[in-house]
Design a protein around this nucleic acid. Structure first.
Length: 591
DNA sequence: CGGCATACG
DNA sequence: CGTA
DNA sequence: GCCG
């Protein structure tokens, strides 16, 4: 049945999602046009009137054979299925379109087949743009006739274009190819809710890798001392599983500092000066320098207890404490757990029976520790998690994260046009594969956000895309007694599956978190949910230590008088805190 | 020796 | 306690 | 486990 081949998807680091601003890692900008059938052009695909499958296919073709970009004005070639001028103008400013080759999707396919850019004459998408399209066609025959009036061939100076919420006006991927395109009249979105354009550069030289705060230390996805970091992380993980949280925190901090250290470590002297490297951890690093490993980490990795606790705690809803309890009951394998929790092997939770899962309430203090009454019972909900474990353990390639974002945003825009969103989490930090997908949403009109989370979840649920709702909740303002303030943060933790019509569909269920913020706290929510955890922790620590402020995902308040602050952009949060800008791809303070 | 991010269910 |  |  679900034997649609999962797209191999060789080239990644592709187009950044709609309004997210993660970039490819700063290090390399390989220009290898090898293996690409076309020269490296910047192609922008206008999503209107294309279904999800076509978008994915075209994007894939462009990525593999040439290059894509996320802004129309940065592109050389616009590809669109739209044929009417008025329609195109809703997605690309006319003045911009006039400076590009605007062609049909067939041009891309044929050019790839042909092995080079074809003349655009036969592929003009919009009649009124025939002249300019031929002029700007990347096939270099007609270039010499450069009697162009405008055409600054390098990207035009980009006047602040009116930006509208045109995030993926593609139809739902459920409806096949035809396009009704409902709800027109683009909603105007204030500039500050959209990602900065151009993106803000990270001034690495003004940051400080010796800082005691992770939010001042630029940390790449993978560092030059990565294997040492992994050793320390093994010990951290073990401490955490064993309930030694403070010790775990120390290892986490040490690893985080090493992660940001930009040189290969060759001597102990290099690291003992770094913060959070004390006697014990310094000794372990010395050992690592001498032998290439840390004995304790190797021992841990080999131990049955560690392996088992790790396995148990990898199940959603099972933490260190429960994992240890199960281990003490002499359970060791998943099969043991399935028996213990009463799962019938042979695909159970399979098939799309929609399940609503409620968080299990905690036992009262007075009856915990008396392992009795409820040993194999109760947690009907762990059974569900067990059934999901295999799927949720799979990582999600960037391209699929983007597809999920597209699908969800399309549904949302149907529901409430004008929403703005950012895909956050590890994806935004540049990870090539994610464990889950987190999306933060808002709407320029604050009054339209309330209840949206629940509505969207209901809609996705009705359409079979959300199979489980692990959690649905709201946050509120800092007002101890919130009077006229409605909640300004709503959150849903769900399990999601792409519709079978999606080219990425392979039946794997994925964790999807949806976060709705009021526009005033949109960027603080985005910062919070972008992480990494250590980065987030230290930004809060910094706010407290240096500014006397409290920072959480739903806002910033001054501690002594509870005055609230509402930075209008992500950059303004950094400025408010007196911090240098750190791009999301440099916030990888965790392993 | 106290603090280590913070909030919700 | 477990999750973000 | 490390810091002030």
């Amino acid at each position: 049945m679900p034997f649609k081949r999962p797209r191999p998807n060789p080239t990644q680091g592709g187009p950044n999602s709609e309004s997210s601003s993660s970039r490819p890692l700063p290090a390399k900008q390989t220009k290898t046009s090898t293996a690409k059938g076309l020269p490296d052009m910047k192609i922008y695909i206008v999503q209107a009137k294309l279904d999800a499958e076509s978008i994915a296919t075209l994007t894939g073709l462009a990525e593999r054979h040439s290059g894509v970009c996320r802004n129309a004005e940065d592109a050389e070639v616009l590809i669109t299925a739209v044929s009417m001028r008025r329609r195109l103008e809703r997605h690309v400013p006319w003045e911009i379109a006039k400076t590009k080759a605007v062609v049909t999707p067939q041009w891309l396919r044929d050019s790839i087949e042909h092995g080079g850019p074809l003349p655009c004459d036969d592929y003009v998408a919009i009649g009124d743009l025939h002249e300019t399209t031929v002029q700007h066609c990347p096939d270099c025959n007609c270039k010499p006739c450069g009697c162009s009036d405008d055409s600054p061939s390098p990207t035009p100076p980009t006047s602040p274009r009116p930006r509208t919420a045109e995030l993926s006006s593609s139809p739902t991927s459920l409806s096949a190819a035809s396009v009704p395109e409902p709800a027109e009249r683009a909603v105007y979105v204030p500039e500050n809710l959209l990602p900065p354009d151009p993106p803000i550069p990270t001034k690495l030289e003004t940051l400080d890798y010796t800082s005691r705060y992770a939010c001042q230390r630029p940390a790449p996805l993978v560092c030059v001392n990565q294997s040492l970091v992994r050793e320390l992380d093994t010990i951290r993980h073990s401490r955490w599983l064993e309930g030694e949280d403070r010790s775990a925190l120390s290892y986490e901090r040490a690893a985080s500092v090493i992660k940001a250290y930009p040189h290969k470590i060759r001597s102990l002297a290099q690291v003992v000066k770094l913060p959070f490297i004390g006697t014990k951890i310094g000794g372990l690093i010395e050992q690592y320098l001498n032998t290439g490993t840390i004995l304790e980490a190797e021992t841990i990795k080999g131990s049955e207890r560690f392996q088992t606790l790790s396995l148990f705690a990898s199940i959603y809803g099972i933490g260190p404490s429960t994992a240890r309890r199960l281990y003490d009951l002499n359970l060791r394998t998943l099969e043991d757990l399935e028996i213990y929790y009463g799962v019938e092997r042979d695909d159970v939770g399979r098939q799309s029976q929609i399940v609503e899962v409620e968080e299990k309430p905690q036992h009262p203090r007075w009856m915990r520790g008396q392992r009795a009454a409820d040993d194999g019972l109760g947690d009907s909900w762990i059974r569900v998690a067990l059934g999901l474990r295999e799927d949720l353990a799979k990582r999600i390639p960037r391209a699929e994260v983007e597809e999920m974002g597209r699908v969800v945003i399309t549904e949302l825009n149907d529901l409430k046009p004008g929403c703005v969103s950012t895909i956050v989490g590890g994806y935004r930090r540049g990870k090539r594969e994610s464990n889950d997908v987190d999306i933060v949403f808002t709407h320029p009109d604050a009054s339209k956000v309330k209840g949206l989370c629940k509505s969207l979840v209901r809609r996705l649920h009705e359409r079979g895309m959300v199979t489980h709702v692990m959690h649905l909740s709201s946050f509120h303002t800092h007002d101890p007694l919130r009077l006229h303030h409605w909640d300004n943060l709503e959150k849903a933790l769900t399990v999601f599956i792409l519709p079978p019509t999606s080219p990425f569909y392979d039946g794997t269920r994925r964790r999807l978190d949806l976060i709705f913020a009021s526009p005033e706290v949109y960027w603080t929510a985005v910062i919070g949910w972008t992480g990494s955890i250590m980065f987030q922790r230290d930004i809060r620590q910094w706010a407290k230590d240096k500014l006397g402020m409290k920072f959480d995902s739903s806002g910033i308040t001054r501690r002594y008088d509870s005055k609230e602050f509402y930075p209008k952009t992500e950059k303004e949060v950094f400025e408010l805190f007196g911090l240098q800008w750190v791009d999301p791809t440099w916030r990888n303070a965790d392993l």
